[in-house]
Amino acid sequence: MSEAFTTSTARNIFYGGTLFFLLVFLALTYQTEQSIPSRDRREMLADAKVVAGKKIWETNNCIGCHTLLGEGAYFAPELGNVVKRLGSEEAVKAFIKSRPPEGVPGRRSMPQFNFTDQQLDEIAAFLKYVSEINSAKWPPNIQG
């Protein structure tokens, strides 16, 4: 056994194999960066509202309850397609505004964040942008 199987060969295969697959991964990363402009709707980022909306999304830790394109917590609904689900950006804003500060007795409820109208516009613009990303037909249906 010891002759058939040497530590130095095992080590070299580790370094070589890892390097090999790392290079493949980096090449695919490059390819991905080349091809996503046709899918990621980056032109919508020219709108300052979308960028500001992403920051509001982050600084209120929305991902701590919701998922966005399936990633996040699984405590509250998926928001990648929420604009489509609720029908419009207006409906999304109205929902966020309507949350009772003390919650709903016995039930899960989104906190009341007291956003300004401008902030609501920005969040809605951000969610609209995410809903237009080409996510390979995910989620399977409108319920997310």
């Binding site: 058939a4 199987f5 060969t9």
Partner: peptide
């Protein structure tokens, strides 16, 4: 064992 190192 097959020819070469078992690790390969």
């Amino acid at each position: 064992y097959p020819p070469g190192d078992l690790a390969i």
